[in-house]
């Protein structure tokens, strides 16, 4: 056999040996999935978890389309935002001090939507600075996944003397993308005495 045939013949054998499994429709039967039970902390534990911030006078005006959620001791405010991809959640929280610094908090948010943490040098590039009503907000926009579905997180961090406020909008990518303009306008309605 001529030598020039060696290569093509051997390659064909190699390709056959390593060829991938053929994709095909699969059929199986699974028990119906049960939704996770809703866990509610005992009332006394929740009450003790309330974080005093001493600045309850911070105010904001939410767009009419957002639905206020029942109050929760951990949250200063909470809204549901409906959209194409499903419901998104806006939470307003406040904690004393700098709560570990801006980078640690943003990386915590990134972890929630399965994104790798930012290094210190990358922090500035991911921030949008917003000034409104004499307040400065560090705004971020992260796109990741949560529960396997594309999830977007819009966040604004307000650092005040002795406390930090977090405005966080998370939910399906399509819903949060559509609500971005409203979110930025909403941040500009936040006022402090």
């Amino acid at each position: 056999m001529p030598r020039r045939f060696c290569l093509p013949v051997s390659l064909a054998v190699l390709a056959l040996l390593t060829s991938c499994r053929e994709a095909r429709v699969e059929h199986y039967r699974v028990p119906k999935e049960k939704p996770a039970p809703t866990t509610v902390a005992p009332a006394d534990a929740m009450a003790s978890a309330t974080v005093p911030t001493g600045s309850e006078a911070i105010t904001w005006t939410a767009p009419a389309a957002w639905t206020p959620k029942p109050p929760s001791p951990m949250r200063k405010g909470s809204y549901a935002i409906a959209g194409a991809g499903g419901e998104a959640d806006l939470s307003i929280t406040a904690f004393p001090g700098d709560t570990g610094g801006l980078l640690a908090n943003l990386n915590r948010w990134r972890g929630q939507i399965s994104l790798p943490p930012l290094a210190g040098g990358e922090l500035e590039a991911s921030l949008l600075h917003l000034d409104a009503n004499g307040l400065h907000f560090d705004v971020v926009d992260f796109v990741g996944t949560s529960n396997g579905t594309p999830t977007r997180l819009l966040g604004a961090v307000l650092s005040r003397p002795g406390e930090t406020w977090f405005f966080k909008l998370t939910g399906p990518e399509a819903t949060v993308a559509a609500a971005k303009a409203d979110f930025l306008a909403f941040i500009q309605t936040v006022k402090a005495p």
Binding site: A23, R24, V25, E26, H27, Y28, R29, V30, P31, K32, E33
Partner: peptide, 16 residues
């Protein structure tokens, strides 16, 4: 989803 206990699932890989 008709069966109250089980789901009959047919999955088509994205390749197809």
């Amino acid at each position: 989803h008709t069966d109250p206990q089980h789901d009959d699932v047919f999955v088509v890989p994205e390749k197809l």
